[in-house]
Amino acid sequence: MDQDKNNSQQFQSKWNEQYTWEVFDPCTVITIGVFDNCQLQGDNRGERIQELGSVAKLHYSHPLSCHQIEILRHQATQIVSTRLSRSEPPLRKEVVEYMLDVGSNLWSVRRSKANHYRIAGILSAIVKVIKWFNQIRTWNSPFITVLVHILFLAFVCFPWMILSTIFLYLFLIGTWNYRGRPRHPPHMDVKLSQADTALNDELDEEFDTFPTSQKQIDILKMRYDRLRAIASRVQTVLGDMATQGERFYNLLSWRDPRATALFLILCLIASVLLYITPPKVVVTVMGFYTMRHPRFRDQRPSYPMNFLRRLPARTDSLL
């Protein structure tokens, strides 16, 4: 790794100087450090040399808002692009905006798809665990299900083993993944960026300015309809989440007097039972009930789920 530390002794430093290094490794990293030697205003040899761009504690105690960061980013882009446009050879504004991620917060179908698949990749492990537990519940492999029951009883009897087992399992996974560790620096992934499947109109919309400079009304209508279709899905998901939250809230709001009274009676009974019953017994009963054999399982929705679905929500009050 080559390091070039430029100790500037004047205000007007030249940043367009050309340097040449002999590269023997394609993974060579060049680190450029810029320092202020505190000697610009006089002979201050006793002061400590400060790194330019070091972050003070004030940035953590009073951080800038997202709007302020965007304003600073826009101003920095204008200053840098104006300065570099006068260099030889001139550097276009689009390059500066790309390097400073100016359009990272703007709408893009391609970037939205990429973020969707990124989240799906992160949640894939949780989905696998849920599918595996569903196979345990349905007794697809009785031998593995019995082993899970035994392991569950061991955790109930010795609860201090839960965290140690989890961390040991994570350690074993990390050790096993050491063989397939990345051996090359990260690079631009076309498939991850969804650039190989992006349509021409999607790319044209992404590279469009804000406000738009598109003059064709038909293209704008098509983009607007596509955006409405995507927003409708998001709106549906948000509406479902709000409905479920309102149903939980209405358990205690007496919006449905019979449902609230029944829920309060069940809470009182559960409070008494949980007070007189040891916690290990409660956890054991709940675990065995969840993993019971399909012969003792009803295909219809459970009573708590059916009760929750019948609770009122504020969807009828919406226009």
Rank of each mutant, 00 (worst) to 15 (best):
V146I: 07
F155R: 10
R110D: 02
S104V: 08
E51K: 14
T82C: 05
I122Y: 09
V55S: 09
P89A: 12
C66N: 11
V129T: 13
R137W: 00
H116L: 11
L106S: 11
Q68T: 13
E47V: 03
R137H: 06
H62T: 09
V146W: 01
A154S: 04
A125G: 08
W107I: 04
H149Q: 04
R86N: 08
G46Y: 03
V95Y: 04
H74D: 07
R118N: 08
V127K: 13
F155P: 04
V55E: 08
F152R: 00
H62M: 04
S85C: 03
R73I: 01
E70D: 15
G103Q: 02
Y98N: 13
D101H: 13
A114Q: 08
W139K: 03
A125Y: 07
Q135G: 08
E94T: 14
V129N: 07
Y117S: 06
T77C: 14
Q68D: 11
L151I: 03
S124Y: 07
H116A: 05
L100I: 12
L64C: 04
T82M: 01
G103V: 01
D101S: 14
A120R: 05
P63M: 06
L106V: 04
L58H: 00
Q78H: 07
A125C: 04
S124N: 12
V146T: 05
V95A: 09
Y98D: 10
S61K: 06
V96M: 03
H74E: 10
I136C: 11
W107Q: 07
V102N: 06
E94V: 12
K131T: 13
I150R: 06
N105P: 01
R73K: 10
K57V: 06
H59S: 15
E51V: 09
G121K: 06
T138Y: 03
A56S: 13
S112Y: 02
H116M: 09
R110Y: 00
Y60K: 10
T138D: 07
L147A: 06
A76G: 15
T145Q: 14
P90G: 08
T138Q: 11
Q50G: 04
D101K: 11
L58A: 10
S108T: 03
S104G: 01
R111E: 09
L151Q: 15
L72A: 12
V109Q: 13
V80I: 15
F155T: 10
I144N: 12
V127E: 13
D101L: 04
S108N: 05
R137S: 11
W139A: 08
L64T: 07
V80W: 05
V109S: 14
R48K: 15
S61T: 12
V146G: 01
I69D: 05
E47H: 06
N115M: 08
V127S: 10
S124A: 15
V127M: 08
P63F: 01
F133T: 13
L147M: 11
R118T: 12
L106K: 05
G103R: 14
V148G: 02
T77R: 06
L84V: 04
L64K: 10
W139H: 13
I69H: 12
Q68P: 00
